[in-house]
Amino acid sequence: MRHSTMLRIGPVGFRVGSDWRAPVATLNELYRDYPQPDIPDFNVRLFAARPWRRWVRPSVHIAGDFVLPESAPLPLAQGLLAAEMGMNLQMALGQRRYLLLHASGVERDGKALLMTGESGAGKSTLAALLMTRGWRLLGDEFVLIDPATGMAHGFPRLISLKNEAIAVMARAAPEGRWGPMLTDTPKGTIRHLVPDARAIAAMDRPARPALLLFPNFGFDAAERTVPASECFVRLTQASTNYVALAEPGFDALATLVRSIPARAIDYPDTTSALASVERLWDALA
């Protein structure tokens, strides 16, 4: 590949190669404080399907060690998004060491708060807001559970904020470092926020899961205890490698849902959500 870079996020090393300079330059700038792996766990390739498409209407195809058939290419202006999607894809399809939960996570006093939900439920935004209020960010997209220890390992990649959440976070983190504003992506407008220095410095330190929340944005404030059985089923759906891990995956998930309390919280706005989170954490974690 013409251009390439390496970066490590939590316990996972990536090598990203590209036919264009720009996506690699953006990655290098935004991930400048992250360590580099010697030998990466996964490779991501951003390439032009035909040689001339490097210049003529350049469109970025995503591939790597693990690929989905027929994923749509992105315009070169969204090269950063392509790289992030490529890395997420390697994790979703190829990760075998950790049980992968599609969840955000934050840590306080060595204990982890995990938040999971459908896209749009607000898990990224809530995790980013908690990061600005003294919590250590574990990650906004994936939390990695070690089947051997039950500990939650962080994966603090760039925080992917969408649409209205971008302005919310710009107010909450005025000092934050940001990637370019990406408009007209398949998911609307996206902008990436670099996790704070603390999240990056402590990314190798796992935390003991202590509370599981299922936030849901856009409803009147409400709260419900979620039984372990329901948590189990919802987390099997929120894990891309639960089936691939087979018995260790089952054991890790069963242990997790039995050992920590879980609540579903509906919230009309972030202020109310943050208040619920702090109250539940003080009461349960």
Partner: peptide
């Protein structure tokens, strides 16, 4: 083997073992 390679190959073996089952 370097530690990182060890981890990757151990994962590959685990995946193959599951594939075998």
């Amino acid at each position: 083997k370097p530690a990182a390679a060890c981890g990757i190959l151990a994962d590959a073996r685990a995946a193959a073992e599951h594939g075998r089952t």
